[in-house]
């Protein structure tokens, strides 16, 4: 039972997992025990050699990882978004489109001017017909026989009343 525990301490010593005082005491023990020292040398050498036996990943794996790192970089993603927005803005204001935009703006102004003057002319021409139209709109209503009978009837009635009164006055005079 003593040997396994001592060998476990060799491992803790080799891997530097002992407190300073404990390590110092164990070193003294190692120096005084040849068998323990041999085991220490054997294992330390084996561990060193194992460390030399490291294998490396392939370049392809490393490239894939770094490609992922670059793709998912939040700063680059944000700048990509900005570029995307800048993209259409800058393309809108790019040299070729600027000329196009100016030409389009000029065309709009010209068309607006033409349309404005046409409207003015049309409006001045249409002022009297409009008035006529107003009267025309009223006149047919007056001229409409179905609407006219009432005023006619009133006149007739008034006439009847007038003649009636005249007759009464004549009778009174008589």
């Amino acid at each position: 039972m003593r040997k396994p525990n001592k060998e476990k301490n060799i491992l803790r010593f080799v891997f530097d997992e002992m407190q300073e005082i404990e390590a110092s005491n164990f070193l003294s023990e190692l120096c005084s025990d040849d068998e323990l020292w041999d085991k220490y040398e054997e294992w330390e050498g084996a561990i060193d050699e194992m460390k030399e036996a490291e294998a490396g990943p392939s370049e392809a794996s490393l490239n894939k990882i770094m490609a992922f790192v670059e793709e998912t970089n939040p700063n680059k993603q944000a700048s990509k978004q900005q570029d995307k927005h800048k993209g259409w803005l800058s393309s809108l204001f790019s040299g070729a489109n600027l000329h196009g935009m100016l030409a389009a703006a000029m065309l709009v102004f010209v068309l607006a001017g033409v349309a404005g003057s046409v409207y003015k002319v049309k409006r001045s021409q249409n002022l009297s017909p409009d008035r006529n139209n107003v009267s025309q709109k009223i006149t047919p209503a007056v001229q409409d026989p179905s609407l006219q009978w009432e005023p006619v009837k009133i006149n007739e009635g008034l006439e009847d009343v007038r003649t009636g009164i005249e007759n009464l006055m004549k009778k009174d005079q008589l």
Partner: peptide, 28 residues
């Protein structure tokens, strides 16, 4: 956001991490 720093970490530990995985799974 400095990607080069991860590259440095990868360079430092790639062999240790890969060897650990390789010796556990035993298949390259």
């Amino acid at each position: 956001g400095n990607d080069c720093c991860f590259n440095e970490l990868l360079t430092r530990y790639k062999s240790k991490v890969f060897t650990t995985i390789y010796l556990i799974v035993k298949d390259r």
